[in-house]
Amino acid sequence: MNAPHSRAIHFAYEILALGLLWLGFSGKIDPLHLSFGVISIAIVVAMTRTLVVALSDDHENAAVGRLHLGRALAYPYWLSWQIMVANFQVARMILSPKLPINPAILRFNSALPGALPKVVLGNSITLTPGTFTLDIDGDSFLVHAISPQTAQGVIDGSMQQKVAALFSDRLEEEPGVELSFSVSKPRWKAAPWTM
């Protein structure tokens, strides 16, 4: 990819997003407020210059260009449904007097391309049934699960495949989830849950 060209596009996106944000926040379109907006956008673009250059030079981020638009539009609906389910499960767990939890640490590798898909997967895992992303180191994810019944989406890999399908046609292979009950002394076992 042609680097200066890609940088210009990234800066154009940034300016567009900041401008829309300014219009949303201020809601006034007289020359005075618009000039304030232009000045603030210029300051922010100058301050984040190095970040945008680093992002546009990072070729892994080309994944954004290959985003499947249809799936990307359908994903938030699926995710909202999952979030509702997750919240009712967690709420029932918290409110039931016996506190039926059985926490464990899951670890799996994921071949997602680039940083953005990993962020999407990490945030989705945190928001959905009983799982919460602890650490992402390269391709390896560390996930805390509050109880076995609620972590099925991560253990059988349907969540990972859902996110992978957003960014490429190739489906992700089985994630090979490993299980442990400790952070520092890993005694990894193969899923499914054994306890």
């Binding site: 979030i83 509702m84 997750a86 919240n87 967690v90 709420a91 918290i94 409110l95 506190l99 939890i101 926490p103 945190t126 928001l127 009983g130 919460f132 602890l134 805390h144 509050i146």
Partner: peptide, 29 residues
């Protein structure tokens, strides 16, 4: 209601990791 459940979870659950569940999910929703 969800916000209240999140607070109760932060108090009731046994350790930091499980409390973080209560802090992230019901609270955000």
């Amino acid at each position: 209601c969800f916000v209240l459940i999140g607070s109760i979870g932060v108090i009731r659950l046994p350790d930091f990791y499980t409390r973080a569940h209560a802090a992230s999910k019901p609270d955000t929703l």
